[in-house]
């Protein structure tokens, strides 16, 4: 029990450092919502070393804390929508045979961006926001794949 709590806490701390790095890194794209999703690396890795409930907790606590520290009420809403949708997509796909860590992460990245844009359309009460869907999908594929490859490298080391 104690060890589990400590592991989760360490992962939340790590994810928050990643969030911080993301917050201070300038993003070279003019599309809102496009980012590397470094913190997702922790969540993807978590899926393979923790129980789903614990991963959810790590992800939710991370989003809550990093939005409070580096974001605002609206960014919390976007992150939560993206985080929750990508959590369930990744949880489902993890059990599907033939899905590698990178594949799960990729789907998670895309799901995150779709969740975010859906909330954005709802917030501004305008579907014109969906104009960014293609760009955000492509960005989700790229970022998700990158984080997935990194996660599988991390897992290979962890399992040794």
């Amino acid at each position: 029990m104690g060890k589990k709590v400590a592991t989760c806490a360490v992962l939340v701390a790590l994810a928050m450092i990643f969030s911080y790095i993301e917050a201070i890194l300038p993003i070279p794209f003019g599309v809102p919502g496009v980012k590397l999703g470094l913190a997702n690396l922790v969540v993807v890795t978590g899926f393979y070393i923790l129980r789903p409930g614990e991963v959810f907790l790590v992800s939710a606590v991370r989003i809550l804390l990093s939005s409070l520290l580096f974001g605002n009420a609206l960014s919390l809403l976007y992150s939560l929508a993206g985080g929750i949708l990508s959590f369930f997509v990744m949880l489902g796909l993890k059990h599907v045979k033939g899905f590698s860590v990178a594949g799960v992460s990729l789907a998670g990245g895309v799901a995150h961006n779709i969740g975010q844009i859906a909330v954005a359309a709802w917030v501004v009460k305008n579907t014109a926001v969906l104009y960014y869907l293609p760009a955000l999908t492509a960005a989700g594929v790229a970022a998700g794949l990158l984080m997935g490859i990194l996660a599988s490298r991390v897992l290979a080391v962890l399992r040794r």
Binding site: G30, V31, P32, L74, Y78, V123, V124, A128, Y132
Partner: peptide, 27 residues
């Protein structure tokens, strides 16, 4: 706005082109 995305989205002229400022709910 806190993120400044609306400024960074640059100039548009094509039909259906869109600039969004999420914090100010402006499209």
């Amino acid at each position: 706005c806190p993120d400044g995305y609306c400024v960074r989205q640059g100039k548009i002229h094509r039909k259906n082109g869109t600039i969004v400022c999420l914090p100010h709910k402006l499209v």
